[in-house]
Design a protein around this nucleic acid. Structure first.
Lengths: 196, 196
DNA sequence: GTCTATAGCCGGATAGAC
DNA sequence: GTCTATCCGGCTATAGAC
C-alpha cells in the first residue's frame, strides 16, 4: 500500500463526489475504480478496504478546506465587522463547496465515533477555537457554544433545506444567493427579528 | 395487498425505528420481518416492494405528528407569546421524537423528489402556512420564508450537532435541555446577540 | 397470510498471472 | 501496480405448499 503516489490521490478525488452524492453504501468499489479508470481489484493496492478508503477521503476533503478563517477575521476590528466576516466565511466555505457540505451532512446523520472525532478535529474545533473568545466577548447572556451552534445552524439550514424550500410558496432564488444570506443572518444576529 | 390489517400497521411501526437508525439501505427486509415476527416473504403480501414500504412508513410517521401547532399557538396573543409558542412547539416536536428527527434528517440529505414533496406536504407546508402571516407581521425587514428557515435551523441544528458538540470544549448537558434551548433561541430571535 | 426454498443479482475482497 | 477470474455473503423478490 503506497501512500503518496499520484493514483492514491486520484482515487480520493474520484471517490469524494461519489460518496457525497450517494453515501457510503450507495457507492461501490467498482464505481470508484471506473471513475479513476482502473479495476476494483487495483484499489486494494492503495487501501486495505472500502472503509479505510472512505475515511482517508474524508480526511483529505476536510484537511484542505478549513484554515481560511484566520484570514477572514484578520482585518476585522469592530464586533460588527468580525461577526460579518465570520458569517461570510461560513457561507462561503459551505456555500461554494457542495461536496464538502454533503459529506458533512451525511456524517452528521450517520454518526460514527471515529468519524465524528475527525470532523470535530478538522472542521469545528479549529473554527470554534478562533471565535470562542470573540463570541464570549460580545455576548454576556449567551453560552458561547450554544451561540456558535446557532450561527452555524442559521447558515447551514438554509443550504440543507434548499431542495425543500423550492416547493414552498414564497420561494425566490435570490434567497440562496450568498450576499442575501449573509445579510439576513448578520442582521438577525445583531438586532433580532426586531418585532413590532 | 390488504391495506388496513393489524399486521400492515405493525410492519410500519416496526420499520420506522430501523429506517431512522440505519437508513434505507441499512435495513434489510429480513430485519423488518424479524422485528415483526414474520418472514421476509410475508412482507410482500402487504407491500409490493421495499421502496413502497419505506414510503408508506414515512407517510405514516409524518401524518401522525404534525397538527399540534394550532393548539400551541391558540392561546398566544402577543408577538412574544406567539414566538415563544412557535419555538417551543418546534423544540418539543423534534426534540422528543428522535425517530421523526432522524427520518427528516435522512430525507434532507438523500433528496428524492417524491419524498421531498411528501415532507413538504406533511411537515413544512402546514407549519409554514400557520406562521407565515405572523412572521410577516412581526418583521418588515426579513423575508418570511428565510425567517422561517432560520428559526427552524436555529432549533434543528442544536439537535443535529449534539453528537459532535459533545466533543467540543464547553459542552454542558444542560444545553440540550428543552427549556434552555427555547430560551436561548427566543432571546436570540427577539434581541439578537445584543453585542457590546 | 405465512411458510420454505431458491432464483438472481450485486458488492467486497482475494488469488495469481503479467 | 494493474489485470482477469472468482469466491462468497447478503439482499430483493418470486414460486409454490400449507
Amino acid at each position: 500500500m503506497p501512500k503518496q503516489t499520484k493514483t492514491y490521490t486520484k482515487i480520493l478525488e474520484a471517490a469524494l463526489p461519489l460518496f457525497a452524492a450517494f453515501g457510503y453504501r450507495g457507492v461501490a468499489m467498482r464505481d470508484i475504480a471506473n471513475t479513476v479508470g482502473i479495476t476494483a481489484a487495483a484499489l486494494y493496492n492503495h487501501f486495505p478496504n472500502k472503509e479505510t478508503l472512505y475515511l482517508k477521503a474524508l480526511e483529505y476533503a476536510f484537511e484542505a478546506q478549513v484554515g481560511g478563517l484566520s484570514g477572514a477575521l484578520g482585518n476585522a476590528r469592530t464586533p460588527h465587522e468580525r461577526l460579518t466576516a465570520f458569517v461570510g466565511f461560513w457561507v462561503e466555505t459551505f456555500g461554494s463547496d457542495v461536496i464538502l457540505r454533503a459529506l458533512l451532512q451525511r456524517e452528521m446523520t450517520d454518526a460514527d465515533d471515529t468519524r465524528l472525532a475527525l470532523l470535530v478535529q478538522h472542521v469545528f474545533q479549529p473554527i470554534y477555537a478562533e471565535v470562542e473568545s470573540f463570541l464570549t466577548s460580545i455576548s454576556g447572556r449567551h453560552d458561547p457554544l450554544m451561540l456558535f451552534t446557532s450561527i452555524a445552524g442559521l447558515v447551514m439550514y438554509h443550504f440543507e433545506t434548499t431542495p425543500m424550500r423550492k416547493l414552498l410558496p414564497g420561494f425566490r432564488p435570490s434567497q440562496d444567493e450568498h450576499e442575501a444570506l449573509v445579510e439576513h443572518v448578520t442582521m438577525l444576529l445583531e438586532h433580532g427579528i426586531d418585532m413590532a
